[in-house]
Amino acid sequence: MSDVAMSRREWLLSERPQSRLQARLGRAYMSWQRFAANRLALIGLAIIIMLLLVAAFAPVLAPYSPVAGDLRQGLKPPGWEHWMGTDDQGRDILSRIIYGSRLTLYVVVLVAILAAPIGLLVGTVAGYAGGWIDTVLSRITDIFLAFPKLILALAFVAALGPGIENAVIAIAITSWPPYARIARAETLTVRNSDYIAAVRLMGASPARIVVRHIMPLCISSLIVRVTLDMAGIILTAAGLGFLGLGAQPPLPEWGAMIASGRRFILDQWWVAAMPGMAILIVSLGFNLLGDGLRDALDPRGAGQ
């Protein structure tokens, strides 16, 4: 058994990979080793995997319906019947949090899919093109950065109308500028390097250089940044939900749940505290994961 494992390890760490696949896997394995050396990052990864599993199996895991409540059972403290208690409408908070994980993931994934590519594209194009293109794109980025994120998101949601889709769009619109900044900074450091000059000398078009040679270099720092931002995105979504501009009742969005628990916060603390705890744990998970990824994906570390 250990014999097979050893040879597989050697195959992955081979200095002379025999195929594209082996080279790629070997590289991934090295990154994984660096990542796995960090305990806290593994905890973060475990939390995020838990979140994924909970979201996937919500109907199986949730003991009650997340939306239908029994008014007679309202505001019950945590106990054997309802592990996290019930809210004012008699809905089981645990079930709502379990279903809420789906909404949280939905928001986080959509924002990442929307915002990261926009930021990457704007940043790399600005950084590589330079001149007036850079000036225009950078100033637009600056304008977005000049507003506090939540205020800007509020303004967009107010214009688009409340709802979780609009909240996602609003958050995405407000969160790409930092990514553009990072991508631009990375691009500026590599654009005059010899290996980019070498690709130019092969006759590659600017678009090809940006997409195939510069973007891959920016992606790892962007992944790290997006992961670290996940916590912020969850909090912004929760903030919008709290203000009544994000997910609408009866959707079990964590922020909206805190908002509705606000009224009883002194007497029935669990109504607000349980979703708050969920937000805290998931945010922490993303932060730990991001820190681990930074160490694992850092291109400077890869060479040594």
Binding site: P17, R20, A23, S193, D194, Y195, A197, A198, V199, L201, M202, G203, H213, P216, L217, P299, A302, G303
Partner: peptide
């Protein structure tokens, strides 16, 4: 032009893309 003229750079550590085989 780029098929008829090619260049080799001074610093072998800087002229190869670090993320490409």
């Amino acid at each position: 032009f780029y098929r008829s003229v090619q260049m080799v750079f001074q610093d072998p550590y800087g002229s190869l893309h670090p993320r490409q085989t």
